[in-house]
């Protein structure tokens, strides 16, 4: 069956936008029409990849349909391999794509990019890397979201049942910073320094960690632990992964004082605790049914210190971010083909 549609009355940007709205396509922002010519250009030199069915709809995307969504998102052909790697990564069973798309939780498909492809595409891992402004960040994350919406069928209000959603559902893509005093996260996870890697996780938007006053690593970690110790997070009871994205200045202070990702992880496991008194009685009862008990007089954040991943991104300033997850997901990393 042909995948080409004839839209006879669509002859300008406004008509295209109306046509998308009518069909339930797009994220509400303008898109670029995926004409056959643009899709062909997107696919020139595209790597061969193997893809499976995308829940909730259960349809397997083709390279052409992914390219069509990449065009709609504003991608350049050079961005497509990263989009393909991200689509492949969210299909890993551990990522739990179906659960993450159909849930009432506001999680979005977070994409962190490591390695040389960042510079080649202009991916931002510096100032405002989690915000607007860098085309590659914006369009790669958006292309993944559009693939999940159009091919996966995760339409808000129908198969995407998020209670409130989040701005991250439009696009949530950033690069690791080169200004890390430690191994980049991809290297921590066993990839070579020369590999270009995407790491995906069904994640909440970033929770800011503002600490201008602390002058030591231990003090900064006190603020980080306090930010992580919140009773409304999925990580408290579903457990699963979470990401500490340190700003380079906080990371530099920590490294100066001898902290490493391993010692930070161990310290936060002990100190990022949610006092039992901060959890309602009804929730405590429910946690017991889900097999979650406090450790003494406080709950841990997640069930294993290794579930906390640590990376560096951002620009000048005394801010970091904690990125909790859906819980029933994993941080999945894939080499960019």
């Amino acid at each position: 069956m042909s995948d080409v549609l004839d839209l006879p009355d669509v002859d300008d940007a406004w008509a295209w936008m109306a046509a998308c709205e009518e069909r339930g396509w797009g994220d509400g922002l303008p898109t670029i029409p995926p004409t056959e010519e643009r899709v062909a250009a997107m696919l020139a030199g595209a790597p061969a990849v193997e893809l499976g069915p995308l829940p909730p709809r259960g349809v397997t995307p083709t390279l052409r349909s992914i390219a069509a969504n990449a065009v709609m998102a504003g991608c350049r052909p050079a961005d497509l391999p990263v989009v393909l790697a991200a689509v492949g990564a969210v299909q890993d069973e551990a990522y739990n794509l179906h659960g993450s798309l159909a849930t009432t939780h506001p999680c979005a498909p977070m994409v962190m990019v490591s390695g040389p492809v960042r510079a080649a595409l202009g991916l931002n891992g510096g100032g405002n890397c989690l915000g607007q402004g860098a085309r590659a960040n914006a369009v790669i994350g958006r292309a993944l979201s559009l693939v999940l919406l159009h091919v996966g069928g995760a339409r808000p209000g129908v198969l995407d049942r998020s209670t409130q959603g989040s701005p991250a559902k439009y696009t949530f893509c950033f690069a690791e910073s080169d200004e890390t005093p430690w191994d980049p996260l991809a290297v921590q996870r066993g990839f070579a320094a020369g590999d270009s890697v995407v790491s995906v996780m069904a994640a909440e938007p970033p929770h800011n960690v503002n600490d201008h006053g602390s002058t030591t690593g231990a003090e900064i970690l006190l603020t980080v632990a306090g930010t992580m110790a919140q009773p409304g997070s999925n990580n408290v009871y579903v457990r699963g992964p979470h990401l500490l994205l340190l700003g380079p200045e906080h990371a530099a202070t920590l490294a100066r004082d001898g902290w490493t990702p391993a010692s930070i992880r161990a310290h936060l496991w002990e100190h990022a605790r949610i006092p039992v008194a901060h959890v309602s009685e009804g929730n405590r009862r429910q946690f017991v049914e889900w097999g979650v008990e406090p450790d003494g007089d406080a709950y841990t954040v997640s069930d294993d210190p290794e579930n906390l991943h640590i990376a560096v991104a951002g620009g000048a300033g005394k801010h970091s971010a904690w990125i909790p997850s859906f819980g029933g997901t994993a941080l999945v990393s894939r080499v960019v083909p």
């Binding site: 909730p56 159909a102 198969l159 049942r161």
Partner: peptide, 14 residues
């Protein structure tokens, strides 16, 4: 009732 569209869509897919 709020989850009926999800169930119907899943049933259709399967």
């Amino acid at each position: 009732s709020s989850f009926l569209p999800l169930v119907q869509a899943q049933a259709k897919a399967r």
